[in-house]
Design a protein around this nucleic acid. Sequence first.
DNA 1: TCGTTGTCATCAATCGATTGCAATATACCC
DNA 2: GGGTATATTGCAATCGATTGATGACAACGA
Lengths: 342, 342
Amino acid sequence: MANKVTLKQIAQEVGLSPSSVSLVLNNRPCRISEENRKLIKEVAARNHYVPNQIARSLVMRESRTLGLIVPNIESRFFASLAGSLEKRCREDGYALFITSSGGSADDDLELLRQLVTRGVDGVFLVVGDEFSDDRALREEVSHLPIPAVMVDRAIEGLECDKVMFDHEMGGYMATRYLIGQGHRRIACLVNARRSNTGRKRLAGYERALREVGLPIDARLEFESEYYISSAYEASEAVLATDATAVFASSDNIALGLLKRLHEMGKSIPGDISVVSYDNSAADVLFEPALTAIEQDPGVLAEHAFACMSKRLAGRGGRRAEEVVLEPALIVKDSVLELTKHN
Amino acid sequence: MANKVTLKQIAQEVGLSPSSVSLVLNNRPCRISEENRKLIKEVAARNHYVPNQIARSLVMRESRTLGLIVPNIESRFFASLAGSLEKRCREDGYALFITSSGGSADDDLELLRQLVTRGVDGVFLVVGDEFSDDRALREEVSHLPIPAVMVDRAIEGLECDKVMFDHEMGGYMATRYLIGQGHRRIACLVNARRSNTGRKRLAGYERALREVGLPIDARLEFESEYYISSAYEASEAVLATDATAVFASSDNIALGLLKRLHEMGKSIPGDISVVSYDNSAADVLFEPALTAIEQDPGVLAEHAFACMSKRLAGRGGRRAEEVVLEPALIVKDSVLELTKHN
DNA sequence: TCGTTGTCATCAATCGATTGCAATATACCC
DNA sequence: GGGTATATTGCAATCGATTGATGACAACGA
């Protein structure tokens, strides 16, 4: 293993002071002879000199590093968000410290502290969806010495920049679309018990029904965690109803549902129509392709970064900014249009 | 935004020197009165004091942070690897800096430098699969001032710890299994042009054929990138052959193939048998479930960490260690047993 | 009273960079 | 040769922690 080369060593070899070397290598406006400049650069290159960011950020009080906390990097959506965000950060010369918490508020807190003490200049937080005790986390976030942007979801009632898709609107759009296609008995499969986003999507679903005077029937509302297996379990009951369509409030939930449908020999949309959520790559495989509410992680990343960027630059008011993005309905082939006589 | 509290400020408030505070808060053996100890701890807690790791790691010459470079965090396999690795690192008090390169050697190099200058104590590298020019990267890795462990793949001919599954063996096992089930015309769909792992899997496939005296028929070997779309494109040609089985050398490749099969109304394993690779979660959905070569990312992470851990502790010889893991064949329902009269 | 021992706490150097200010060397002018 | 620009470069403090070396003070025995 090679040794780390320091500024001082370069200086020694060149025969100049460390300050001069620093000045030259950072292209600071200063009066160092062209000759020495060249010499310094050459020696630095020859020795593979790379400045120690640790030392540098100690004095500069900035690390050009940002942090991200997601509940679970193994989920497609978060992985994609992380990927986009990292790319975006790198474009502006920031490194992104990606961490994955496991979803409990305690883990989130621990990671947040880690990031802060490691000197990130700002954090993106995808936290606050699960209903564990988040008092300590809330406290920590509100006293953060660096800017924070909550992405995709939020800790309720916390004054903090937020960037997220309108989950209520998503639920509403999916349901309105089904209604528009003639469906009247529409079931939904949501994670309302343990998830804020799920709760909002459910609210949107109900608003759509209410708006056209359809009854809100508790027997058509089913609960599922955000796992394929959970949705698979829950789906049997869904299929026992007289629903002609189902709103599946996440891609995993849709996948679990599809698996069950497939096993029962039901066809889509012939036997039952489905609107999914997230429109992630896995869907690509299904016949028929799934009509879904899409929320592009890239767009989320873009806005989140813009928000962060503003804070880092010291711009942006003292009040928190809130960006709400509209999801899109992507129509494919999993919904049957019911004609009157049906 | 709250301010960062420093050691000095705590010291000032307590009325003791910074050294004393440091000593106490780190539970160093030292003679500070019980009374003052309590006082220090209390004041530190009240002020939400958190030590600045940046400053600390400057003097301690270690950050308890490790780095990971994967080609693409959006891929299921890498996301899963990253997740497992992070969890494992955290168990030992290390934070993991996850980065995603995009797959080119230049990006890898850039990220590696970033990690090193940011003071990670070691790096996990998932690099070297693509055939871009990697001279600079190779050079950098061999002069690294910190331990590196190559995971899942490697830059050929580089003296460096390696932990990976035996890709050749995977290809061999898949093919032997198909042969064992009576198949004689076995096609394969691999990424041999741009991927070392793909090349190895192909080698395993050929070894299996050779071993039983079956001909290696170039007309049965098809090329596909590791994308669903690429495999989808390539699959038409595969299906035009007289093959009774296909070895798909990655999950994405299998998915593309399946999509095409589905569209052509072919059934699995009735019309054609398939052995997939990676056995990732997406497979769960298919009817029939896919027989596949499985390489558990968690196992990979475990061994990679163990390897790193040894280096960090200063144990481990001067020669590079090489851990080769055997993949497992998971038999499900996508392969038809051909009886003699077929 | 001096020396010894023990307890409690502080000093000051260090890690590797950055940077305002001071210092030196050279050139130029009268 | 003295004085003033101007061109170059170096000093030393700083960021926030850690830590080996040291100091101050009290109590105690001889």
